[in-house]
């Protein structure tokens, strides 16, 4: 089997050209890539990603397909990736800090963002379609979205036993039809919440601070009430739920009521102040930096951001219909 070795200034790649390509167009991709590397041209566009080890496997020559699907929380299109046989689903989060660029070996990439690609439970994406369905239907009939054609691929991502966590199955012979079950769904979500909160507790994760003060002050997990971890976990899960379902889950979890700030002004002020202090202390990195932490401790923000998130979520609840309504 002939092997083509291509070399450029940065790295050497060995490519097996004749390894029975599945499709003609795929071998074309390879040829194009090889010639690009040879001519030492910078690619027209590129991006930096962090992906699970098993996502791309060099030996089987099969890649992943990145598509837009409807985000279950926002109802807008965001990027997901299917494994080559449409059995695994990944979500893609972009880390984006405004003033960043990459040095990649001996090249510059102006866009300094990167993409964290992680497994996502496909049930989260299937849920809204199940909830919306008027009748008990086969899964492939449910997963239809005019705006996002690839939605149908979700049907091969979840097995029967997975779907049973959120829906009731009516079966006759090989025919399976599904009906959304809120009871099952809430139990399924509750399990997830408990697993996440357990993990947060084990990691001594700081769940008592807001977005602005970040996870600076490491608190002793013994002192943090169990419910704080649960609430944080609930907040994370809610990133995958529409507002109604999130509200239902909150009720189901029976979380202690969130303390609302007595004076709204108190909530507004500290972040701005802290931001300023941040800028000043950070400007002297060579000084004893343990000092840097002191100002933050004083600025401890009393109200958790989750309480505010919930307060705002409660105010502006969007109906599921608004996600799926025709434009």
């Amino acid at each position: 089997m002939p092997r083509v070795t291509r070399k450029n200034s940065i790295q050497e790649n060995v490519v097996d050209v004749n390894s029975s390509p599945e499709k003609d167009d795929k071998s074309n991709i390879k040829v194009a890539a090889i010639s690009a590397a040879r001519s030492n041209n910078h690619p027209e566009s590129q991006c930096v990603m962090i992906v699970p080890d098993g996502m791309l496997n060099g030996n089987n020559q099969r890649g992943i397909v990145v598509v837009k699907l409807r985000n279950p929380k926002t109802g807008t299109g965001t990027l997901y990736a299917f494994s080559h046989n449409n059995t695994k689903l990944y979500e893609i989060n972009q880390f984006d800090e405004s003033k960043r660029s990459w040095f990649l070996d001996n090249s510059v990439q102006s866009d300094g963002s990167f993409f964290l690609t992680t497994n996502v439970d496909p049930l989260f994406l299937i849920l809204p379609y199940l909830q919306k369905a008027k009748h008990t239907s086969p899964i492939d009939q449910l997963l239809v979205d005019e705006d996002y054609a690839e939605t149908e691929k979700l049907s091969t991502c979840s097995k029967k036993e997975d779907l049973e966590k959120i829906a009731d199955c009516k079966q006759s012979g090989s025919f399976q039809a599904w009906k959304y079950s809120e009871e099952k769904t809430l139990n399924w979500l509750e399990k997830k919440v408990s697993r996440i909160s357990q993990h947060l507790k084990e990691k001594n994760f700081n769940v008592t601070q807001s977005a602005v003060s970040s996870n600076y002050i490491k608190t002793d997990s013994e002192a943090v009430p169990e419910s704080s971890f649960t609430r944080y976990a609930f907040g994370l899960i809610s990133e995958y739920l529409c507002d109604e379902l999130s509200a239902a889950l909150e009720k189901h979890l029976d979380l202690p009521a969130v303390q609302k700030p007595a004076n709204n002004q108190d909530v507004k002020e500290p972040p701005a102040k802290r931001q300023k202090i941040d800028g000043e202390t950070k400007s002297e990195p060579l000084e004893d930096y343990s000092k840097d932490q002191k100002p933050f401790a004083k600025e401890k923000i009393q109200v958790s951001a989750k309480s505010k998130a919930l307060a705002s979520a409660a105010k502006g609840s969007k109906s599921i219909a608004s996600f799926f309504g025709k434009k």
């Binding site: 990027l79 880390f95 964290l116």
Partner: peptide, 10 residues
């Protein structure tokens, strides 16, 4: 905190 947002363009 982590400056993470759902990607819309790769």
């Amino acid at each position: 905190d982590r400056k993470l947002k759902p990607a819309t363009k790769l």
